[in-house]
Amino acid sequence: MEALVASAVAVMTAVGVYLILRRQTFPVVLGTAMLSYAVNVFLFATGRLVVNMPPVLSDTATGYTDPLPQALVLTAIVISFGMTAVVVLMALGSFIASGDDGIDLGEGRE
């Protein structure tokens, strides 16, 4: 399971980094979304990976999974969701204002 989670984080990060280095805004937006998925899975794993354990301590529980990373992931998801919405709107605004969806500043093409 460790290998699966680790490779999932790695692949998503690699895809995200590749995409945010593209020159059009649409792949860049996808890339930021990809990166935020990667970091969410990563955060989830920071409390150590265990299966079938309750997130709270009780008298009958034999162990527990760390609940804090789950709260952190929830916060991170909400924030990255909002951020994605913002960047989509800004990319759209930039596309409408300038007529192409390049991410460069394109000096001299006023």
Binding site: T25, L35, S36, A91, S94, A97, L105
Partner: peptide
């Protein structure tokens, strides 16, 4: 136009930073 273009770069840079 110029402000939005620069704005997109600023946002993407900071989103990468946030990650």
């Amino acid at each position: 136009r110029a402000r939005l273009r620069a704005g997109v770069q600023y946002v993407v840079m900071n989103l990468a930073g946030s990650v």
